[in-house]
Design a protein around this nucleic acid. Structure first.
Length: 488
RNA sequence: CGGGGAGUGGCGCAGUCCGGUAGCGCAUUCGCUUUGGGAGCGAAGGGUCGCAGGUUCAAAUCCUGUCUCCCCGACCA
């Protein structure tokens, strides 16, 4: 078998690139740091979108769309926010080109009076609108989400994990009280946790970020963190409690039922196409992509094993009721009856693309009333009778979904350790994984640990061990253990 | 943005040091034989050698600039 995918053990980064390429998820674009999302990759994103969008609607949100371009002056209204994003903004300065000697150049006469920023996130332009929408407590809450692209001028990029332009959703809500906004922040964090675990089969730790890792402009940033196969952590989603920072910056007040004028409380929350990178690095193996059934564009592929056209039509006829039955159950099935590829080639291709279940039917199976079922996650094959195969396969998809989550959970928990001393920590961090340790809560200690070990505090976990102790570095009191890892 | 590596038919590469008019494997097209884990034989098509300048009788090869990708650092969803 011609091996096109580098083994994870040999070169993890190359493996990741090979999987993206062989599964036809995305290409590099001619522009640095940007990517072309191919149909296979976009179909996964669309499935993610569909599931998340339903969860957002079920929690009372509605979709809207705000513009790509933001007046430069908006960015400077919230001090922390500018500081965080200023260094990575694409700026539009001109509006026209002109032909020069058969080529094309920027027309210097078209310089804009006020330069425009391509949104790195939309808080500012949205809060500018909210000012006009909100007068009374009766106008609240505002629960809006948008699906959009954003641009952040990154130094170093990787397909899906960090690109200069990426697709995401950003929720922006406005509330009358602090308590309600905090509840919203936590509610959406829980939506993300549920989505990651139930759809992506990706176990996550929920927690709150330390001050240094907080979103620019937030009071508190909550996150879901997941552990990849190479022992590095990935921040998979964030939910921010913004306090009254943006309301004050954009002067958004409402008259409450006590007659007082008050600033509005805010949240924002988002997940991006980075999730696809997380999906790849959570489940895939040396044969290529592995996708959980709930997000797989094609859940079942049927490969007929044939000697001639006559046999092909017989097998397709034999399989027809099964295919129809599966479709009726809502399973997405593809029949791969291309005759320019041999079965072995097709097997390898569908494996590289991560199709969860493969059915193979040859003359032998047909004679015996059987078919062969192969699972992508375990690579195990079995022969089963075609009678009742539809029900078997649809429940197999559920089993695979569950098993993939359990396998990822087992891998994560085996790579999670608790340490008490800084020496133990330094040793553990070299092996990768999640590490729980006591920390004194100061930025100084956090920076010291980062400088010496390259590990960062991923979050202060919401659930888990709340036993107080002593900081592993300074010996000062610590309220609870926090989660460390090297990260993407 | 600093250090290292790379860019040659769709994909993977050789050729570059030492300049002489582009080759291999896979893929593609056609034909025949094949089909239970990436088929075989025969024939055919496809490349301004990342891009732009320069040196030269002659540039994939030498020089200058520039763009993109990969790895390692500083910054980040």
């Amino acid at each position: 078998m011609a091996k096109r995918i580098t083994n994870r053990a040999d070169d993890y980064s190359q493996w990741y690139l090979d999987v993206v390429k062989e599964a036809k998820l995305a290409d590099h674009s001619p522009v640095r740091g940007c990517m072309v999302i191919r149909p296979n990759g976009f179909a996964i994103w669309e499935n993610m979108k569909q599931a998340l969008d339903k969860m957002f609607r079920d929690t009372g949100h509605e979709n809207a769309y705000f513009p790509l371009f933001i007046p430069k002056s908006f960015l400077s209204k919230e001090a922390q926010h500018v500081e965080g994003f200023a260094k990575e903004c694409a700026v539009i300065t001109h509006s026209r080109l002109m032909s020069v000697d058969g080529g094309v150049e920027v027309d210097p006469d078209s310089r804009l009076d006020e330069e425009l920023i391509v949104r790195p996130t939309s808080e500012t332009i949205i809060w500018d609108s909210y000012r006009n929408w909100i007068q009374s407590y009766r106008d609240l809450p505002i629960l809006i989400n948008q699906w959009a692209n954003v641009v952040r001028w990154e130094m170093r990029t990787r397909l899906f994990l960090r690109t200069m332009e990426f697709l995401w959703q950003e929720g922006h809500t406005a509330h009358a009280t602090e308590q309600e906004a905090v509840e919203e922040t936590l509610k959406m964090l829980e939506v993300y946790r549920t989505f990651a675990e139930e759809f992506m089969a990706m176990p996550v730790v929920t927690g709150v970020k330390t001050e240094s890792e907080r979103f620019a402009g937030a009071v508190d940033t909550y996150c879901i963190e997941s552990l990849m196969q190479d022992g590095k952590a990935l921040q998979a989603g964030t939910s921010h409690f913004l306090g009254q920072n943006f309301a004050k910056a954009f002067d958004v007040k409402f008259q409450d039922n006590d007659g007082e004028h008050k600033y509005v409380w805010a949240t924002s929350w988002g997940v991006s196409t980075r999730l696809i990178g997380g999906l790849i690095m959570t489940h895939s193996d040396d044969n290529g992509l592995v996708i959980p059934p709930k997000l797989a564009p094609t859940q079942v592929v049927l490969v007929p094993i044939i000697k001639n056209d006559d046999q092909k039509s017989q097998i397709l006829l034999y399989a027809e009721p099964l295919v129809t039955g599966l479709k009726k159950m809502g399973v997405s099935v593809k029949v791969d009856d291309r005759d320019n590829f041999k079965p072995g080639w097709k097997f390898a291709e569908h494996e590289a693309q991560g199709v969860p279940v493969r059915i193979a039917i040859g003359p032998r199976d047909m004679e015996n009333g059987n078919l062969e079922v192969a699972r992508r996650d375990t690579l195990k094959k079995e022969i089963i009778p075609i009678d009742g195969a539809g029900l078997y396969i649809s429940s197999l998809l559920e089993t695979i979904q569950k098993d993939m989550f359990e396998a990822a959970k087992k891998r994560t928990s085996e790579a999670t350790r608790h340490v008490d001393t800084y020496d133990q920590f330094k040793e553990a961090i070299e092996e990768g994984g999640f590490i729980y340790a006591h920390w004194d809560g100061t930025a100084e200690t956090e920076t010291l640990i980062k400088d010496e070990t390259k590990a960062t505090i991923r979050c202060i976990p919401l659930n888990g061990d709340k036993t107080p102790g002593k900081c592993m570095v300074t010996g000062n009191p610590s309220a609870q253990k926090v989660l460390f890892a090297r990260s993407y």
